[in-house]
Design a protein around this nucleic acid. Sequence first.
RNA 1: GGGCCCGUGGUCCAGUGGUUAAGACGCCAGCCUUACACGCUAGAAACAGGAGUUCGAUUCUCCUCGGGCCCACCA
Length: 810
Amino acid sequence: MYDISVDERWNRYWLEHKLANFDENDAEKPIYVIDSPPPFTSGTLHMGHVSSYSFVDFMARYKRMKGFNVLYPQGWDTQGFPTEKAAEAKFGISLPREEFYKRCSEIAHENLAAMKAQMRLLGCSFDERYEYITMTPEYRAKVQLSLLMMHDKKLIYREKSPVEWCTRCLSAIAHAETEEKSVETNFVHVNFEVVGTKKHITIATTRPELMHACVALAVNGNDDRYKDIIGKKVAVPLFGQHVEIIADDHVDAALGTGAEMVCTFGDKVDREMYYRHKLKYIEAIDQRGRLANADKFSGMKISDARPEIVKALEAAGAVVKIEKITHSVKVHDRCGTEIELIPSMQWFIKVKEFAGLIKDIANDIGWTPEFTKQYLIDWANFIDWDWIISRNRVFGTPIPFWYCEKCGEIIAPEKAKLPVNPALEGSPLDKCPKCGGKAVGETATCDVWVDSSITPLVITGWPDNKELFKRSFPVDLRVQGTEIVRTWAFYTIFRSWALTDNKPFEKMLVHGMVLRPDGKRMSKSKGTGISPEELLKKYPVSPVRLWAALSSAIGKDKPILYNDFDYAKSFIIKLFNSAAFVKTAIDGKKVPTIEPSKDMGIFDVWILNRLNTITKLADNAYDTFAFYEAANAVINFYWHEFCDYYLENVKHRVYSTDKKMEKSRHAAVFTLHHVLMTTLKLLTPIIPHITEEVNSMFNSDISITLAEFPKHTERKAPPDYAINGIVYNSDIIDEDYENVGAFLNTIIAEVRKAKASARIALNKEIPSININVPEEYYKAAIAAKGEIAQICKAQAVEVAQGVYSVSIKV
RNA sequence: GGGCCCGUGGUCCAGUGGUUAAGACGCCAGCCUUACACGCUAGAAACAGGAGUUCGAUUCUCCUCGGGCCCACCA
């Protein structure tokens, strides 16, 4: 019986025998490197991982069988906010920096171990000797080296600038880490008095709490209502500062009142106008999201201040009306907190100016499916900020620089001293080489994408193992989801270029998301996820992997359907049962290793040719990541041609005890065994546990995962190729045999049909079958007469030339 | 507002410039056929709508409608 214990047994076997190890000393075999995604160590795999890592493993196993020396390391993305959050929840927030770091690292290690076990259970055949973990000193040294090198190339700078800031995480975040959230809010219409007149101008704002940081009012220059007051000053209610009315094309005259206030900073547009009009800067909120410079409101949280200020405005008679509107705000994707724009000193990597170059490299990479490249191109076309790489966190790779307190000069450590932690260690230079100012260590850590955007380099031995790097970089394949094209793919391409002047990978396989059965996204917080654990309680590994293959409409999101697992499971049962039949047919005797050509029957030649065709198809399909096609073709062939027809067609030969039938029996056994074994090999990349198990039923002591992937051979019939003793034309080739076999099967199907409609049991003997066949199949039908009689349990078969028809006498 | 993907039987999905439009699940009928009733055989059932290109369109183009994703805007 097949259950998960079989999977576990083979998983152990492969590991013990090191069957998936990369051989660095092998100079013969071509190398194939897979850049498998390092999952964030959350502690558990989700169905998206199952699908994604299945694809990775399909390719690793396929390429091994194709004779490649496969380097498939698995890495782990350990650092970042969620781990810190988990550590805070578990140990509180008041731990000292180093202690806190240690706790985070413990959590990450535990989670990593759990996830690795899950991946191993799925049969993922990564070589653990090449594992990388982003929080280790070795990995950090590489990340830091990469930053030093990019600094040498003048790609890194430090600047005080309004950045997207999470007031909960107390850190700058990258634009790519933000997401949209729709919220209902008040659209408050407020009167501003034009200074020196009795006139008012009304603006509409969703952020009345930023009144105190209002530095201008903006209207559209073409708006006739306001044309004559542009340049005049208005007084800000409650706070009284006088600000200028400015004209800016951005303002939409039709929206709100056609006038808006500019605060430092309410949103991205404020930031643009601040620069465009060289406005004054007033710090509106602090890093914790509390009002600053707001008189008696200072220190209040934004959420508390908003209603208070509206109240005060109303009391002052400045509020015209309040509308309820739904608009969207940017939130931090990891914690859902609304993003604020807060000026702070941050580290940047120049990327904006390289968007064109990144596009060029993307065009030089093979994307599957092709359209996913567009995700990256679109993103490259839109980026308008450089990459903020600093995060004001603890559990991350330290930014490896010191800087001059006075002039801001960046001081880099020696490359040999890496990894460094400037938050704890003294500067390599006491004084700034430029101005003699005091050198200060940076306390910020890196954005986690800085860690993960060098994976293709790290897995190929960069920077130390130059020999391996030379042979294996760029890597052959990157597998990843569509949702991280703008982060992981984008940054990796850029960093690879910056560090090596080369593209990071030859091919990209970009897959979609696994959705719930109803087509909606799975959400952990809503508890609507389907976990691999749940699934693996119900199904062993092979149906799960087969599901991944069969649902691999690559690049598209795909709902998870239990039908697919059930189907996969029934195929596996079929495989077992048919293998049992083949084993019985062999009956402990030796199977000939060479095809007994002279004794082959038409059905043998037919099924072997079909197998040949399917082999070619599956090979091409794997090579183009068309796992659905490969699995589907092989399964349908095996199930519905081999089992449903061939197997039935040769039963009379297999069970025959007639001495005269000995050779024919032998040929059938050869064919049964050959088709079974070849099919197992064709499916081994996808369902290795089960093919290994079936293979082991046949006294094979060699792992099927070590077998060579079946080759498509041009099978030409030799001149003396006899079918049931009748010599065929020598110009008959594959396709003809396939057609002849398929045609003869339709005769058998017709007889079955006729028997069924006459309500006769299929195994009941009937007196005769009459067949009329078209000319091109006449000879074949004559040749197969005897066999058809045997297969269909008829005493006689009459064949005549004519319009195709089959009838039976009962 | 811009870009991308997708609309195929009840459900999920494959595929194609000429096909009897594949398969799965479900449904209906028959069969315990010396591997398998978790099986086998047979059956009903589909190309969103419109226009164009073409000898011919489900396939290519455009539009409409519908669904999804990404980006921008949202004072």
